[in-house]
């Protein structure tokens, strides 16, 4: 693995979507990111999108990472276009988890999340570091 010092140069905002109380994966992902040199700020479960936006602005975060496994991701992220339009959430948004309540609904829900303005839709936490690395490198180059 190459030099990962850049991972700590910007904060990340992590949390679980507004209607979802699943805490275990969130806590483990937080630990995993810290161990790999990232600097996540964890808002925890049941976090409305506006709180992600406020935290990202306060911390000048490079990305917002929203987890959801209860199937309500599309409903919980429906405010994203408004926040984008108002300029309240400018950084990339990464979604990870189960996008809908069953496997049959996942493709449509993934497409809907992208329509709402989610930049990356991930299935597994293992995909996070590479995506975050690309976001951080881009942010640091353009800064």
């Amino acid at each position: 693995m190459g030099d990962t010092a850049f991972r700590s140069r910007r904060r990340l905002v992590l949390g679980v979507a507004a209607s979802d109380a699943h805490a275990v994966a969130n806590r483990l992902i937080h630990l995993m990111l810290v161990q790999q040199g990232f600097r996540p700020h964890n808002l925890g479960v049941c976090t409305p999108l506006a709180e992600f936006a406020d935290a990202a602005a306060d911390l000048d975060a490079a990305a917002v990472i929203v987890g959801s496994v209860n199937g309500h991701a599309v409903e919980d992220l429906r405010g994203l276009p408004d926040l984008r339009r108002m300029g309240r959430l400018r950084c990339p948004v990464v979604f990870g988890g189960r996008p809908s309540i069953d496997a049959a609904g996942h493709p449509a829900a993934r497409a809907r999340l992208r329509d709402l303005g989610v930049d990356h839709v991930l299935d597994r936490p293992e995909e996070l570091p590479a995506v975050l690395d690309s976001i951080l490198s881009a942010a640091l180059t353009h800064a």
Binding site: A21, N70, E75
Partner: peptide, 25 residues
């Protein structure tokens, strides 16, 4: 019971059951 109702987000649950009940958990 769905997660919106659990958290007393009754209005959200009501909208979801009218618009897209199949996506409630």
């Amino acid at each position: 019971i769905d997660s919106h109702t659990r958290l007393r987000h009754f209005a959200t649950a009501d909208r979801a059951r009218r618009e897209n009940p199949g996506q409630l958990n």
